[in-house]
Amino acid sequence: MALILSVLEQGMIYAIMALGVYITYKILDFPDLTVDGSFPLGAAVTVVLISKGISPVLTLPISFVLGALVGTLTGIIHVKLKVRDLLSGIIMMTALYTVNLRIAGRANFPIYNEETIFNNGFLNSVVPAALAPYTTVIVIFIVTIICKYLLDAYMSTKSGFLLRAVGDNPTLLTSLGVDKGLVKIVGLAISNGLVTLSGSVFAQHQRFFDISVGTGTVVIGLASVIIGTSLFRKITVLRVTSSVVVGSILYKACVALAISMGLESSDLKLITAILFLLILVIAMDRKKVQ
């Protein structure tokens, strides 16, 4: 039971990040490595703000805005300075490593005794004792669902239509008199906003910031997106965003399974990489069959 809860918790936290990766990878066709820096950015900002006494709930929108700024920078590097997509991400990821260290002041920053969105006076007073073990998963569920629905809502606006069109057919945007570069920047901003928000939830869940938490984030995000979109391709009732969330939970379940089979947590990154490779190969196989 504890294992299932932990998979759900972790899966849904990373799902917010995967929603961001979905925008760049699937919609913009832009493999954005900024993610490896913007995820820990959320964690760093959050632990510092919480330790300074800022309300944990406020750290979520603050993280989103900071992430959006970071995404905007990646976009400007790519669109205005015409640096290739992969390189723009690598530049930002490398720069953010230092930025994150500067923000936190050190490589490891615990907040064990502070209030978080999972553990605060308000929650402790309203949640009945019987539900207490499930508080965390419920809070994560609410945050993730809000993010998913806001993203769905955005995608059905006029501005969201442009975002969907730009990866599909950039020529059409030019024909419509719209600057496709600007639309790409907006997409990267929203994407990294979500990733940073996910990092903020992660830090409050783990109750610490560590400079290495970002390593491999993009791989986890891509794996979740590919699992979600290729497994549920046929099921049209399920929105793509929902499949991404489910994909993220399934991915975490796979990792948990691998660890429960006797692998150690220090093997985690290796498991992540091998799993991702497997998923890519299987997903490509399915494409061929079609």
């Binding site: 059905s156 006029k158 239509f161 442009l162 419509l176 008199g177 719209v178």
Partner: peptide
């Protein structure tokens, strides 16, 4: 959706329904 996005050419692509 295609017709709607084309119909909006010249007007702002804002956060109202597509």
């Amino acid at each position: 959706e295609n017709l709607s996005v084309a119909d909006n050419k010249g007007k702002p692509y804002n956060l109202t329904r597509g």
